[in-house]
Every structure is written in C-alpha cells, then in structure tokens.
C-alpha cells in the first residue's frame, strides 16, 4: 500500500504489505502510529483526572505533554478562525512531531491558511467529506489530505498523491463495526501503491465516560486495539492511558 512521510519526514504512514501484524505473511515489523488528541473545546470533567488538566487553554503546551508521554503525533481539533494557523505553527515548532489538523465544519479557508503557513513539516489535513477533500487537495502541496471511506476516489485513484482515509470507530460498534476498516485494508492491498493508509479516530469511546478513568482507558485502548487489528495505520486517542496501552499493543503485535 502507499507509504507517505509525515512530520519532518521521520515518520512514515502506510506502506502495509499484508493484513495487519501477520508475520506469517511477512508483515512489516512496524506498529501503527498513535496520535494524541488536542482540542480547543475539551470537556473539563473528562480532563480533570488527566495529565493535561493544567494545559487545556494552551494547545502547544498540551501537545508538548503528548510528546513527553511518547505519542507519535498529535491531532489538533480546532474551531475555524484566523488564529488557527499560528497555533498549528507553534505546535509544529515546539514539538517537531507529526501533526494532524481537523477544523470544525472542514473550513477550507482555515485549512488553506494552515497549509500555506506551515512549512518544513508535512501535516495531515483532516477532511470529513468528499467535497472538502477535493477542495483541500487542490492546495495541499506536500501535506497529506484525508478523505472518507465512502469516497469513490478511494477505489478509483486519488487526486492528491499523499492521501489517506479517515475513519471513526469505537468499541460500541462491535466486531461488525470493523468491516469498513478491514475492507479498506483488503482493497488497499489489492491495489498496491494505490491503496491508501487508514487513520482511525477512536475518541468517540469517550461518549461512554462516567467519571471512571480506568474504565475509560480500558474502553478506549480496546477500541484502538480493534482498529489496529482491522487495519488502521494510525489511531487518534484522547486519554494518555489508552495511548500508552495502544502503543504497547501495537508494539507487541508488530514484533
């Protein structure tokens, strides 16, 4: 499957040659990437028991905590606006990690400004519809752009060389909810270099949050594990416990 470099070029996304983790088939010994979520509208009660609680209003500082925790990258989720580009730039300069950016309503103007402002790091520009993917692909340059699983371009060749597919999954979808990601991996393998890597956001698991942080870590980390087993090349998580477990799980399975 297609492989692309992200961040300052020291991380690769995609490039799978087998179904996930199957050493018996010659799988690459590379674990999926784990991105920590950083957002400008956190739910305070969800963050009370986390190591991020003192940095909720300062996104670059929050991203730095993810770096200290050993995440592979961060996923910035922000409202559209003129200050978004500077925030992304600060996060890139401060962490030098791969950065994925999701802007509310896929605001194309804001994404355009971000793509133009950040140089020296290959961002992942998150689009959650086919229409915004097509518009963002026009100006993305060296940045990666995501589209959605139902986009016909996923099967018919992409309009931007560095494209990925952005999915959402949490464990409430059960094993059958993984069929979309499994299908993307299978189809992608059959298409060789045209097969697109898959990024899966599992933070939806936090809708089950009831104040029990340990329970949340179990639910989110197992959601990430399911996504990785189905074929996700990267996962986005909210909790540090889930990030740690997802990273360890990926490491062990990739051995």
């Amino acid at each position: 499957m297609r492989e692309m470099y992200i961040g300052i070029g020291d991380y690769a996304l995609g490039g799978a040659v087998t179904l996930p983790f199957l050493s018996i088939d010659g799988a690459k010994r590379r674990r999926p990437l784990v991105f920590g979520e950083v957002r400008d509208d956190p739910v305070p009660e969800q963050m009370d028991g986390t190591v991020f609680r003192n940095h909720l209003g300062d996104l670059p500082a929050w991203a730095s905590v993810w770096k200290d925790l050993g995440a592979d990258g961060v996923c910035l989720k922000m409202a559209p606006g003129p200050e978004a580009a500077q925030t992304v730039k600060k996060v890139v300069e401060r962490t030098r990690m791969p950065v994925m950016v999701c802007i509310g309503d896929d605001d194309v103007a804001t994404l355009h400004e971000i793509a133009d402002t950040v140089s020296g790091s290959m961002l992942i520009l998150g689009c959650s519809s086919e229409g915004s993917y097509r518009r963002v692909a026009d100006f993305a340059g060296s940045h990666v752009v995501t589209t959605v699983p139902g986009d016909p371009l996923v099967g018919d060749g992409c309009i931007h060389p560095d494209s990925a597919v952005l999915c959402r999954y949490d464990i409430r979808g059960g094993t059958e909810g993984l069929s979309e990601i499994k299908g993307l991996r299978s189809t992608g393998l059959s298409r060789g270099d045209e097969g697109l890597p898959v990024i899966c956001d599992v933070t939806g698991a936090w809708e089950m949050y009831d104040g029990d942080d340990r329970r949340m870590a179990v639910l989110e980390s197992n959601s990430a594990l399911c996504a990785m087993l189905a074929g996700a090349d990267a996962v986005v998580v909210r909790g540090s416990g889930a990030a740690d477990m997802a990273s360890n799980h990926g490491e062990e399975l990739a051995l």
Binding site: I171, G173, T175, V218, L219, N222
Partner: peptide, 14 residues
C-alpha cells in the same frame, strides 16, 4: 466488569 463491558460490546452485534 470493565473487561466484560468491552467483550459485551464486541459481541453485542452477534
């Protein structure tokens, strides 16, 4: 119980 909740979710669609 936390573990069983995960398994329950995974099996619920069967």
């Amino acid at each position: 119980r936390d573990g069983l909740e995960c398994i329950q979710h995974l099996l619920r669609w069967r």
